[in-house]
Design a protein around this nucleic acid. Structure first.
Lengths: 242, 242
DNA sequence: CGCCCTGTTGACTTACGTCAAAACTAGTGG
DNA sequence: CCACTAGTTTTGACGTAAGTCAACAGGGCG
């Protein structure tokens, strides 16, 4: 846990969060986290596995609005009384560190570094959301799927779970359809296309990107929205390095 | 400006931000704000008018990823060295309060209220992003447009620029198409549909919602994602009321 | 006046959805 | 080891929502 924490909030802030972890829990796949683990006012750090945040339409059709991978915070400081506007569920089996969010808020006052870091995590999350809006709005089915796979490749690369062209992605084709806003039948056909174009291969919960450059090109994917701000939001007198 | 500021950050925090305003500028419609007004490391409060945040595809087709209305912050604490991953432009003529973001960051340390408030503004922005993803992914053209109009109605209502069924919305049909991820021709047809269904009327930059309930129903629109957290994220010893 | 931008409409195309059947996989229990 | 089931994946046939192209109309403005 410590290494993943250091990756998420920086080695400086690691011990602070570490001290706020109340429990580490294991959750099976396909479990609603709102009901089971994440009570209002709590938050969690995803240590292992995949978690989806989604909104269902009135026929129960699901739209995934975010996919969380290890190292992501879930419901970072979401205010308790606020009715949640989306659902959260595990996709694979997961390991979660439950964090005392009240304690975290107290800690923020004393640690401007941590505030800045969590703030910028929120900013990146919003940037990812915006790319997803772009994807759904302007890209063809092929490009959409390709764009998503490119994003996962980079995000997993950053946490050491991809080597740049091959990674585990424990999703069904139906999951992919709920992510990309397409029918699962069409996802199947698009996957076939990408395979036959020798761009990438998806099977058994694993992705092999045959031609990363062509795939990114098809997807109009520009990874810089995933770059962490190498210099932090605002210089602060309290912390020079980071 | 003061009243709109109080609405955005609360009357308690109003004077703090007020003191950080470096300039108030007027910008004509259809101007790229990245080039003209918002230099890296600056941020702004939109006082008047409409601003779009958008991403262009490689053919120059535009996808609007957020629409800012008076009272919204633009580029809230976006870190200067980070390459921006989307563009910003005025839609109508606007009035902007330019804010010293370095000074703001300094102020955060001393004002936990303000931190909490700005944090929750960021959360709401992300919640709106998620609804947009849902909209593009799961709704038909009709529902998408209806959903957007419902959202604008509520958001403008909250700042006193809608009476609940009628408001100014200075967008062209082409703007609407870039927001909803549809062609402008199709937007035209959908507007006609909504008009003929007696749900709402859009012309001359003005929206009249004839039947708010039916419209919201068609859009599967549930406004609670726009609710401000009535109790704040986390109780803080420094500020009881808010 | 003529130009440009926006809106409107019609004819035609296409990308994607829907429905349905079959193949394949994995888990369960006899 | 073999049914038996349930969840995926794959394919085909067909329907439809939305895109594209193109023409025209109206308003604002030099």
């Amino acid at each position: 846990m410590e290494t993943i924490l250091a990756q998420s909030v920086g080695s400086l802030n690691r011990p602070i969060i570490s001290g706020l972890v109340k429990d580490i829990i294991h959750v099976p796949a396909r479990v609603d986290l709102r009901e089971r683990a994440l009570h209002p006012g709590h938050m969690a750090l995803l240590l292992d596995g995949f978690v989806s945040r989604h909104i269902d339409d009135h026929l129960g059709q699901r739209q995934v609005v975010a996919l969380q991978i290890p190292g992501d915070f879930i419901d970072l400081c979401a205010p308790p009384p606020r009715q949640h506007e989306h659902d959260i569920a595990t996709i694979s089996t997961t390991r979660l560190a439950l964090i005392d969010s009240h304690g975290l808020w107290e800690a923020l006052g004393a640690h401007p570094d941590l505030t800045r870091k969590l703030w910028s995590i929120g900013l990146m999350e919003a940037a990812i959301h915006r790319q997803w809006i772009f994807r759904q709005g302007r890209l063809s089915a092929r490009a959409r799927l390709a764009h998503f796979l490119c994003e996962m490749n980079i995000r997993l690369l950053k946490i050491g779970q991809s080597n740049g062209h091959s990674f585990r992605l424990p999703l069904t084709q139906s999951d992919l359809s709920e992510i990309c806003g397409l029918s699962s039948v069409h996802i199947n056909r698009v996957l076939k296309d990408l395979r036959e174009m020798s761009l990438c291969l998806f099977r058994f919960g694993r992705v092999d990107i045959t031609d990363p450059i062509k795939l990114a090109n098809l997807a109009q994917f520009d990874p810089h929205y995933l770059d962490p701000p190498h210099c932090l939001p605002f210089p602060s007198p309290h912390a020079k390095e980071f």
